[in-house]
Design a protein around this nucleic acid. Sequence first.
DNA 1: GAATTGTTCTACACTTCATAGAACAAAATT
DNA 2: AATTTTGTTCTATGAAGTGTAGAACAATTC
Lengths: 129, 129
Amino acid sequence: MIIQIEPQSDVAIYKQITNQLIEGIARGHLRHGDSLPSVRAFAADLGVNMHTVNKSYHELEKRGIIKIVPKSGAVIEAQTKLLQGSPHAERIQHELKTVIAEALVLGMKTEQLEQELAMIMEDLKHNKQ
Amino acid sequence: MIIQIEPQSDVAIYKQITNQLIEGIARGHLRHGDSLPSVRAFAADLGVNMHTVNKSYHELEKRGIIKIVPKSGAVIEAQTKLLQGSPHAERIQHELKTVIAEALVLGMKTEQLEQELAMIMEDLKHNKQ
DNA sequence: GAATTGTTCTACACTTCATAGAACAAAATT
DNA sequence: AATTTTGTTCTATGAAGTGTAGAACAATTC
């Protein structure tokens, strides 16, 4: 599982880590039940501060993706059903609406969006890069 | 076109304005060719600083949604075709992938995502709230 | 001509981000 | 049993971002 940090990016480092870990899990590089590296080891590996990795882990825990076991480690959570009305589902829904609204405003059509969705699913599910 | 600012939100005010304007355009409350209020008038209306609205407008211009005519006003751009490979298209694509990856990790299924997409489209196109 | 426009500048307070170092107690390893 | 590693917590610092505030400018609009 390779993670690439771009220090010059306008995206915060802890968010880059968070997003790439999520994409790694989605691609199957990391599986449910797997443990993430310790914050110290991961930080040394990435060349960033320990606290930055720690922030990313807590972000992932807040989003229901990992569970941090005190004094032990961070474990990737099992997939839930994502029941409708749950905070996580509503958050996803809201984020999705924001992106789609912008896509529509920029002139993207319904079929184009459906095709885009299909391509992304294909990419995430079968393209392990 | 009513915009509601939540000062306590963890989302920056200028982003709240940006997102709600985009959603307003997607819903048809604002149409292509329409002018946005002057930064001073809008700021007074929202109860925020002029510079905050100005930042939102420049954010919208950077995203290709409005065009700021110096000394005149901000006009909503016409929809382009959003040709593949354009910076705007790639940005949308990237944002979409980020959200979808998280949805998958949380256990959302393909059909659920397609249904979600359809619901959002329906909401944006016909529900003018 | 007067008012309004977006732009630009300085200024201040506050928050966030990233780094750094230290110390702690619990867990894992040897 | 002793050592190492673990996440947590604390202080601290510098840089960047956010939001507000006021002023001035030139161009547009009325």
